[in-house]
């Protein structure tokens, strides 16, 4: 029991650390692409750790499956949306550069 609890705490703390790092990156990084990088990388990993921790904590197979699906769907949607944001920004920059030239 003790070992399980220690594992849960480690996983949750790791998740929180990644969320913190991602937020810090979002606030401190200079441009949109590096911010997106910080946000998606850190948040996906952070969410993964927290989901794993919670799944261990609840310790029921069905809940674990549900949590896993939540994580997968969040991964999918956040990856796609940040790709779309990045693409939009790139196209805008391109059209701006084209106008300047």
């Amino acid at each position: 029991m003790m070992i399980k609890e220690i594992f849960i705490v480690i996983l949750l703390v790791a998740g929180c650390f990644f969320f913190l790092a991602g937020t810090l990156g979002l606030l401190r990084f200079p441009d949109l692409f590096s911010r997106l990088h910080a946000l998606t990388n850190a948040d996906n990993l952070g969410l993964g750790f927290i989901a794993a921790g919670i799944a261990l904590y609840i310790a029921s197979p069905w809940a674990t499956v549900k949590i896993f699906f939540i994580w997968i769907l969040t991964l999918l949607s956040s990856a796609t949306s940040s790709y779309l944001i990045a693409r939009f920004q790139r196209e805008q920059e391109k059209s701006k550069n084209g106008e300047e030239e």
């Binding site: 769907l73 999918l76 949607s77 796609t80 779309l84 939009f88």
Partner: peptide, 21 residues
């Protein structure tokens, strides 16, 4: 004109994955 996110293959694929879910 020009910008048409509707044609984006990745977006369309993701939407197709999400529809049945």
């Amino acid at each position: 004109p020009g910008l048409a996110p509707a044609q984006d293959p990745l977006l369309r694929k993701t939407i197709l994955i999400f529809t049945p879910v």
